[in-house]
Design a protein around this nucleic acid. Structure first.
Length: 944
RNA sequence: GCCGAAGUGGCGGAAUUGGCAGACGCGCUGGAUUCAAAAUCCAGUUCCCGCAAGGGAGUGAGGGUUCGAGUCCCUCCUUCGGUACCA
């Protein structure tokens, strides 16, 4: 009884592929090349969950399909292996994070191999490999050695940086400082998210609701000297580059919103004595708009320079450098107290609650440059230090935030844009009682009255520009990238800080010579952070920490790089993973780049993909890569949820509460309408029935039940482990099910019964070819060397066509459905042409490779089915002699007729009208209009 | 609040992009096989009325365009995901 036994078949073929290097990448891509890439995983201690193989199976099918169509394929896998969990484990246990990481990598590798993915395992890498992070450090040195030429919009070697004579005159120290301030990798005191609990600084994106993303610990903001990467210089290029990418529009929009380009104007407001305004103004007319505003002007950025006449006050951020100067002595206490409070506010406190705006008057005024009127300057934390100039002109009539603030502090509101005549609250807007944040014609704006917003913007900006009071400006929401972490388990920076004889840093630094790379991590006794915002690497021994070059002592940089660093460029290393002379061989690089298909989760939509694109552009500018963008096509696989669960709610008396009466409580839990807390309890499927829109308890149909699939999580206990699925159903069934669930991009719930369904399909495929009634391994007696009949040929060729087209378009679910139809059809046939079976196995092999290899061999074929050419279909075999088309009356199907597939519309109408059934139903009615769509239908418009 | 995606049988989902709604799978019902069960095979399965032939309704709700709408347009509702004062 040779039944389909994946537990036997699958490991055997996996071993075969490994031994025979079936999926080795061609040394030099010949013909069409295709680089198919998965977002590599972080090897967590939990192993793979079923979300991973979704994308991996999709790319595997694409890769196998492409190889069978004669393309050269690069399909690698690796591990994003630096990361907090391994370090936290090390802190707890004292075990070196490398050991734990390797254990996890081994487990991931086992699981990935178990699923039969056709990776070229000779190219596997981990970001923690010294041979790998040597080049991560090398790229950092490139960033350190590059400055951005804004004029040419290109990164250039630091040696080409023009040094202003004024700087040169101040001596070599000043030149060094100047150079350091222009590098793409630079140091800066930044307000950072210090998490005392984790003993580390977190990036903004690692802080969720004012708490650490990992562990949920409180986070405080403190200033610290940090490595920053000047990604903002590349904002324009990163934005423009999006146009040519085949990425989901949603992801492009997310990136472009994140970059957040806006255009407007910078405007200087005079902050000196009112009577000196005219003097200042005419001086500005002479000098023009200066690079820096100087001490007598407060510079703002606005996207609505057309509303300048409506600016009734100004606001500076609590961190604004001019604030002390602007603060009048009688307001000093209030301002200091306010700033103090703001600086101690965590992000959580800032965003929590209704976030009512707060602020304090500084006691000083600025002169509105368009009308010479003094307006008060306030300090408020709704203005962010890091955006624009850190100061705004407030136009409460036309900005919701300013309006809210103005109402609270009773500041004047002057409408300068006319709302439309039919605006509901027109009168209120004009009276300064409501806010109107749209465009329109100018009012209360002197000579500009009546012009529309666009014209006023242009005119005002031009006028200010001529007077040296303002200029057109562009701003980005994107901030420079905080690139250092106070952790052990990351790439050390290849940077040396000069120290003087007392061991103090002099402020000068140098990169480690590239020939000295990698800078390895030091050996430490333990991995505990010391709770100070100083990195664990500072605990390293003197021999690691200090270096002497040409008699000068240096201290190593002790920060480490963030996890993003390794994942920023791994796709390049796969191309030439063992090269120890270069990052990647330029010939190989230009042969394989760009990545043709990149598949991964949408959670990396912004950060990983933006950071990678940034690094890539720097490497491009510096001549190390040949393409301006790394990832040509991007596809996001959807999330896989747990099994659908039915949930009933019970009040404290254990009485069921209908789900329509259950609300979210303010504390985040759930409560009934009357405010009593309710608990959710799972209900078995057979206790539930459908009623109307939802489900109700069978025992009490007045009680509605929630029916929903939840995100898989350990706490909910609905995580599906691929090991278990493979053991029970086999890897081919798991692969097939993941693809059969629905479209790749969709979020969809897991169903173990569904896995059983595709497994029985695979059983049917097996029985279509193997006689399972016989004790020995014998082919189905129905298999025949004869040609198939017409119907069989049509089924075969239609299947080849559908599977080819659907695989090309990554519509895997419908391709599988078609192969199921094929199997259902042929298992009903007495005789089954072997040629058709062989073609079918080739079609199925990218999806269920182990089973197909086995059946291929059972059919007496040599070698791997993976090397077979993909079949093509014969259009002639698809043609039918007669097709059935519906006849509609007024768009409703009434009957069907048979016509030749190439019938012209006239012939179809004729055939329809000649049909007995049609005649019968047409009795006593008039045909007003006749429509026929060739090959589709006939529609008769009839009237009584 | 804003942005994005999506609402189709009991469930997951199809529908050649304006042309037969519900392919394929799960589940369910009946039958065959079996001492029995599993497995397998066959038939049926959107809902309502009807013994049936047949008839009617139907793609979140309402309106519109069209010979014809799941698909296009307008208004609204719901769910999921993302996001947070960027001047």
């Amino acid at each position: 009884m040779p039944r389909y036994n994946p537990a036997d078949i699958e490991p055997r073929w996996q071993a075969y592929w490994e031994e025979n290097k079936t999926f080795a990448t061609p040394e030099n891509p010949g013909g069409k090349k295709r680089y198919v890439l998965d977002m590599f995983p972080y090897p967590s201690g939990d192993g793979l969950h079923v979300g991973h193989p979704e994308g991996y199976t999709a790319t595997d099918i694409v890769s196998r399909f492409a190889r069978m169509r004669g393309e050269s394929v690069l399909h690698p896998m690796g591990f994003d292996a630096f990361g907090l969990p391994a370090e936290e484990h090390a802190i707890k246990t004292g075990e070196h994070p490398r050991i734990q990481t390797q254990r996890n990598i081994d487990n991931f590798t086992r699981q990935l191999k178990m699923l039969g993915f056709s990776y070229d395992w000779d190219r596997v890498l981990a970001t923690t490999d010294e041979a790998y992070f040597r080049w991560t450090q090398w790229i950092f040195l490139v960033l350190f050695d590059t400055w951005f030429d804004a004029e040419q919009q290109v990164g250039r070697p630091i040696a080409e940086l023009p040094i202003p004579d004024s700087v040169r005159a101040e001596g070599p120290r000043a030149v060094d400082a100047y150079v350091d301030s222009r590098r793409l990798a630079y140091q800066d005191d930044a307000l950072v998210n210090w998490c005392p609990e984790l003993g580390t600084v977190l990036a903004n994106e690692e802080v969720v609701d004012g708490k650490s993303e990992v562990g949920g610990h409180p986070v405080k903001r403190i200033p610290l000297r940090q490595w920053m990467l000047r990604i903002t210089d590349y904002a324009e290029r990163l934005l423009e580059g999006l146009d040519d990418l085949e990425w989901p529009e949603g992801i492009k929009k997310l990136q472009s919103d994140w970059i957040g380009r806006s255009t407007g104007a910078e405007v200087d407001f005079f902050v000196g004595q009112e009577e000196q305004f005219e003097t200042w103004k005419s001086a500005r007319g002479e000098s023009g708009f200066p690079q820096r505003p100087g001490g007598d002007a407060l510079r703002v950025y606005t996207t609505r320079p057309d509303t300048l006449f409506g600016a009734t006050y100004m606001v500076v951020s609590p961190e604004h450098p001019m604030l002390p100067q602007l603060t009048a002595s009688d307001q000093a206490d209030a301002v200091t107290a306010y700033c103090e409070k703001a600086s101690f506010k965590s992000d959580r406190e800032r965003t929590e609650g209704d976030r009512e705006k707060t602020g304090v008057f500084t006691g000083s005024h600025a002169i509105n440059p368009v009308n010479g009127k003094p307006i008060p300057i306030w300090v408020a934390d709704y203005v962010l230090a890091g955006y624009g100039t850190g100061a705004i002109m407030a136009v409460p009539a036309h900005d919701e935030r300013d309006f809210e603030f103005a109402v609270k502090y009773d500041l004047p509101v002057i409408a300068v844009v006319e709302p439309p005549a039919d605006a509901e609250n027109r009168a209120e807007i004009l009276a300064g009682k409501a806010c109107f944040a749209a465009v329109g014609n100018a009012i209360n704006s002197g000579s500009l009255d009546g012009l529309d917003t666009a014209e006023v913007k242009t005119k005002i900006t031009a006028r200010l520009s001529g007077e040296g009071l303002g200029k057109q400006a562009v701003n980005y929401k994107l901030r420079d990238w905080l690139f250092s972490r106070q952790r052990f388990w990351g790439e050390p920076f290849p940077i040396l800080h000069e120290v003087d004889q007392d061991g103090r840093e002099t402020g000068r630094m140098r990169g480690v010579d590239p020939s000295e790379l990698p800078v390895r991590l030091p050996e430490l006794e333990d991995f505990k952070p010391h709770g100070r915002p100083e990195p664990p690497l500072a605990k390293a021994g003197e021999d690691w920490l200090y270096v002497t070059i040409d008699g000068q002592r240096y201290r190593r940089e002790t920060n480490t790089m963030p996890q993003w660093a390794g994942s920023c460029w791994y796709y390049l290393r796969y191309i030439d993973p063992h090269n120890d002379a270069r990052l990647v061989d330029p010939e190989k690089e230009s042969a394989w780049m760009p990545v043709d298909l990149y598949v991964g989760g949408a959670e990396h939509a912004v950060l990983h993909l933006l950071y990678s694109r940034f690094w890539h552009k720097v490497l491009y500018d510096r001549g190390h890569v040949s393409t301006p963008e790394p990832f040509r096509r991007l596809v996001n696989q959807g999330m896989i949820l747990g099994e659908v669960e039915f949930t009933a709610y019970f009040d404290p008396d254990d009485q069921p509460v209908s789900s329509q009466h259950v609300r979210k409580s303010p504390e985040g839990g759930r409560q009934s309408k009357d405010g009593r807390p309710v608990v959710a309890k799972p209900v078995a499927e057979d206790q539930v029935e459908k009623k109307g829109e939802g489900f109700v308890l069978k025992s009490d149909p007045s009680i509605r039940i929630d029916s929903r699939a939840h995100k898989m999580s350990k706490s909910r206990g609905n995580v599906v482990n691929p090991d278990v699925v493979v053991k029970e159903y086999g890897a081919d069934a798991l692969r097939l099910y993941e693809m059969f669930m629905g479209p790749l991009e969709a979020t969809k719930p897991w169903s173990m019964a569904g896995v059983g369904g595709v497994r029985s399909f695979l059983d049917r495929v097996w029985r279509m070819i193997v006689d399972d009634q016989c004790d020995d391994l014998v082919l189905q007696p129905g298999l025949s060397d004869a040609d198939g009949d017409e119907d069989q040929n049509r089924m075969l060729h239609a299947t080849i066509k559908k599977v080819t087209e659907d695989t090309e378009s990554m519509s895997f679910n419908t391709a599988i459905a078609r192969m199921m139809e094929f199997t259902n059809f042929f298992t009903r046939c007495e005789t089954r042409p072997v040629a058709a079976m062989k073609n079918f196995l080739i079609l199925l092999s990218p999806y269920a490779p182990h089973l197909c290899e086995e059946l291929w061999k059972i059919l007496g074929q040599q070698g791997s089915i993976a090397h077979q050419p993909w079949p093509s279909w014969d259009e002639a075999a698809l043609v039918q002699s007669s097709i059935e088309v519906p006849v509609q009356f007024n768009g409703k199907v009434k009957t069907k007729i048979h016509v030749s597939p190439d019938s012209k519309p006239d012939q179809m109408i004729e055939a329809a009208l000649a049909d007995d059934r049609v005649q019968e139903m047409l009795a006593g009615k008039n045909v007003v209009k006749k429509i026929a769509v060739p090959g589709r239908l006939v529609n008769l418009v009839v009237k009584p």
